[in-house]
């Protein structure tokens, strides 16, 4: 029984971190067809926000609250200065954001140094029989669920969400009705960056902070978003569910490395079977 509870928390944790990590890119890719390869560095920037906040005497929670705003602003700046010139050229966007990713890693190394900085994991743990479960893991699960729910509500039930969805379908119509599509793109990219910043800040106390930390997650994020397909929420959550389950199951049975290999193999098979990703399985939805 204790083992079942501990394992369930473990699996739920991997799925929800996957959702949280992928959500930002899912929005940028799903709504704008821009595959942002610098998404991993946005995570890292979020993590550094927490690190800098805590070293200035703020609490970890304040850092996590701050991170989406900091990274969101950086995202908006980059969108205005680089990305906006490349709309409609998906491969060029990938190349440019890749260059951005390399340069960001370089600059962060220059400014923050190449060493890993640790942030102590807050809150401690409780025991389930022989197994320890950390409270922070539960908090992460809650934050992921909250972020997914907030995204859903924002897209479905707010005027901004409606405009955003309309812009993605027909920018001309939106422009005709008096809204500047450029503004919508900027806001969407900023929102995606902000979510990445949130994810990075949440992961920081678990992994340690180093300029190259984004690399550890970026493969997972891409696979999740690709397998998820075009619908932002349904696709991402269902693909994170399937992939996260397989990854953690195989990791428990063997090693985390085989877990990652299994995840990639499954993703390839899914892409072959479902060219539109998991979204192809659902009609409509977000």
């Amino acid at each position: 029984m204790d083992q079942a509870v501990a394992t369930a928390v473990g699996v739920l944790f991997s799925i929800s971190t996957l959702v949280l990590l992928a959500l930002g890119l899912a929005i940028i890719f799903g709504m704008m067809r821009v595959l942002n390869l610098a998404q991993g560095e946005f995570l890292t920037l979020g993590a550094y926000t927490v690190l800098i906040a805590t070293s200035h005497g703020l609490s970890i929670w304040a850092g996590i609250l701050l991170a989406p705003f900091v990274v969101g602003s950086i995202g908006v700046i980059l969108e205005r200065s680089i990305i906006r010139f490349l709309y409609g050229r998906p491969l060029d966007t990938m190349l440019a954001t890749w260059g951005l990713s390399l340069a960001l890693v370089g600059v962060m190394t220059l400014v923050m140094g190449p060493t890993t900085e640790g942030i102590a994991t807050p809150l401690g743990s409780f025991e389930v029989g022989r197994y320890g479960v950390s409270y922070y893991r539960l908090v992460v699960i809650a934050i992921s669920a909250g972020a997914a729910l907030a995204t859903y509500l924002a897209l479905r039930h707010t005027r901004a969400g409606l405009i955003a969805r309309a812009t993605m379908q027909s920018p001309h119509l939106v422009a005709v009705s008096g809204v500047e599509p450029q503004l919508v793109y900027m806001a969407t990219f900023g929102a995606g960056a902000a979510l990445a910043g949130l994810a990075g800040s949440v992961m920081a106390p678990l992994t340690g902070v180093v300029p190259t930390m984004g690399l550890a997650f970026i493969a997972k994020i891409f696979i999740t978003v690709m397998v998820g397909g075009s619908t932002v929420l349904v696709g991402t959550v269902s693909s994170a569910g399937v992939l996260g389950l397989v990854e953690s199951a195989v990791s428990y049975a063997s090693t985390p490395i085989y877990g990652q290999v299994a995840m990639l193999a499954l993703a390839m098979v899914l892409l072959r079977l479902l060219p539109n990703g998991m979204s192809g399985l659902f009609r409509g939805g977000l």
């Binding site: 890993t116 640790g118 950390s134 678990l206 992994t207 340690g208 180093v210 550890a216």
Partner: peptide, 11 residues
């Protein structure tokens, strides 16, 4: 060499 989270090891 790139591991920094020793939580499970310590457990």
């Amino acid at each position: 060499l790139d591991v920094v989270d020793f939580g499970s090891v310590i457990q």
